[in-house]
Each structure stands twice: as structure tokens, then as C-alpha cells.
């Protein structure tokens, strides 16, 4: 099936006989993606315009009220702004912490150490996100590791009460997504020629000038790619705010989750999901040229 008559068509370009092979090889994968991604999203779009779940025995009609709810009620707008702010803050912290780290990895450390350290930074990102967030509860909770450490360093420090706060959610999310920023920055930083930096230095540019005029502009694609790839999942997060934020952890993501798992207002949940998806698409559209360059 896989090998068609390639012997007779050495150029292998747009031969009609190849069509069968192409469909045979790519068809199954893309059929799968249609059933699991495209159709579900289409169904969700449909649901978001209904007044109730379209099941036998339910009374439902087509309506715009789910979207109207979002634009009319302050609650959802505040929630949206809160989620956007969270996404922005997490991306900013990831940049502030991750960029210097990527720089050190790309430019200061050499050889086998670099590879080993790079792996150590990247691997947690692919490991279990839920457990990594959960592990912070051990550190942040009242009388947890952090408070004991501070109390030991500064006797009588008292209580921080970080658990179940907005800050706890930010800490957990930065921990989750930091490796992403380090990865994208590292990739762009390692393409900068060291000679360029040395040349600027030898011509009398100070460290800050080199950073501002050469390193930052040249690594911008990596920074932006990292920021976008962090911002998007963060505004759709619900598990991290639930575990670390407690009652303070109400965001758009958690409200959407509620609609599907406890309130059972699927049409409203679908509409909110689509508004979130629209935000995501707008962000990708704006940064698309830079993202393409980065990849």
C-alpha cells in the first residue's frame, strides 16, 4: 500500500498514482483528528446557540442568550479580565525568570554540562502537571515547608498564608510553564553568533547596550513564542486554580468547568468555551508572523 509505482515516476511530484498512497497514509490520522477535534468543536459551536441540551424529551430552541449573558453580566467580564491578567502575569514572570536562565544555558555553560542541565530544565515540563501543582501544596500550606524555612531563617517571622491565594496560583502556574519559556528562548539565543556579541563588546559597547541592542532584539521571536504558548493554556487553566487557589481561584476556566461538571448548563459552558477560543485565536492571529519565524 505504501510504496506505489515510484520507479516509473522518479520525480515523484503530483503523480495521480501517488494519490492513493497519500490518502492511505495520511487518511487514518486525519480522520481521527476530524472525529476527535473538528466534529466536537463544531458540535460545541452548535450547542452554544441552544437554550438546552438537544436530547429527546428536552425543550430547546436556537438562541443568542448564552453569548448575551457574557456581554451583559459584569460577572463574566470581570472573570475574563481576571483570566487575562493571570495569563499576562504568569507569562511575564516566566520571562523574567526564564530568559536569564536560557541565556546562561546558551552562552555561559558549554559541552556535556549544557546538555545535561538543559534536559533537567525541560523534562519536568513533559511530566505530570497535576502532580507538580499538587506538590506546591506541601510547600505553601500553613506551617508548610516555606513557612518553616522562613521561620528558621528569621525567627518569629509568623505566617504567610500563601495557600489558597491568587499568588499561590501564579506560583504554581509559573512553575508549570517556566520550562516552555526557557526552551523557546534557548532556541533563539543559541542562534545568535557569539562573534557578534564579541564584536560589539570590542567596539566599546557596554553589557547593557549589548543586551538591549543585540541580544534582546535577536531573541525576540523566542520570547514572544514562549509568552504566547504560556498565555494561551494559562487563560484556559482550571485545575491549578482549583488546587492552589481554593475560593480565590475563580477564573474563566473554572467557571467553564463548573458548567460541564456541576451546574450542567452545557450550552452556557459551550458559549464561554467559544469566547475563550476566540481570544486564543485572536492572540495566535496577532503573533502569527513572529511564531512562524520562531518555528
Amino acid at each position: 500500500m505504501a510504496v506505489s509505482d515510484t520507479e516509473r515516476s522518479p520525480t515523484r511530484r503530483r503523480q495521480p498514482s501517488n494519490a492513493k498512497s497519500i490518502v492511505g497514509l495520511t487518511g487514518p490520522a486525519y480522520l481521527w483528528l476530524i472525529v476527535t477535534i473538528l466534529l466536537p468543536l463544531a458540535a460545541m459551536l452548535y450547542f452554544s446557540f441552544l437554550s438546552d441540551v438537544p436530547l429527546p424529551g428536552r425543550d430547546w430552541q436556537v438562541t443568542l442568550s448564552n453569548y448575551a449573558a457574557f456581554f451583559q453580566e459584569d460577572f463574566y467580564r470581570t472573570l475574563m479580565l481576571r483570566s487575562l491578567r493571570l495569563g499576562f502575569e504568569v507569562a511575564l514572570w516566566c520571562f523574567l525568570i526564564g530568559f536569564p536562565c536560557a541565556y546562561v544555558l546558551a552562552k555561559t555553560i558549554k559541552g556535556r554540562w549544557r546538555e545535561a542541565l538543559f534536559l533537567m530544565v525541560i523534562i519536568p515540563f513533559w511530566s505530570n502537571a497535576l502532580i507538580r501543582v499538587f506538590s506546591w501544596t506541601m510547600v505553601l500550606r500553613g506551617n508548610g515547608m516555606l513557612e518553616r524555612l522562613l521561620d528558621w531563617l528569621i525567627p518569629g517571622f509568623g505566617s504567610l498564608n500563601l495557600m489558597f491565594t491568587y499568588e499561590a496560583v501564579v506560583i504554581g502556574l509559573v512553575h508549570s510553564y517556566l520550562p516552555y519559556m526557557i526552551l523557546t528562548c534557548y532556541i533563539s539565543l543559541s542562534t545568535i553568533d557569539d562573534d557578534l556579541i564579541d564584536a560589539a563588546r570590542s567596539m566599546g559597547a557596554g553589557r547593557l547596550t549589548v543586551l538591549r541592542r543585540i541580544i534582546l532584539p535577536l531573541s525576540m521571536p523566542g520570547i514572544v513564542a514562549g509568552a504566547v504558548l504560556i498565555f494561551v493554556p494559562v487563560i484556559g487553566s482550571f485545575m491549578e486554580p482549583r488546587i492552589l487557589g481554593g475560593r480565590e481561584g475563580t477564573f474563566l476556566g473554572t467557571v467553564i468547568e463548573d458548567q460541564f461538571t456541576s451546574v450542567f448548563n452545557w450550552p452556557l459552558g459551550a458559549a464561554l468555551s467559544f469566547i475563550l477560543l476566540a481570544c486564543v485565536l485572536i492572540i495566535f492571529a496577532i503573533f502569527q508572523p513572529i511564531l512562524r519565524r520562531a518555528s
Binding site: 466536537p40 468543536l41 493554556p233 487553566s237 467553564i256 468547568e257 460541564f260 468555551s273 475563550l276 486564543v280
Partner: peptide, 15 residues
């Protein structure tokens, strides 16, 4: 790229 929350709820609803 789409947040898992969106794909997850869409799958739930469609399935």
C-alpha cells in the same frame, strides 16, 4: 495549541 479545557469539554459534549 488549543487549551485542553476547550478540547476536553468539546469531546465530552460531542461524545
Amino acid at each position: 495549541a488549543i487549551p485542553w479545557l476547550i478540547t476536553g469539554t468539546a469531546m465530552l459534549l460531542f461524545f
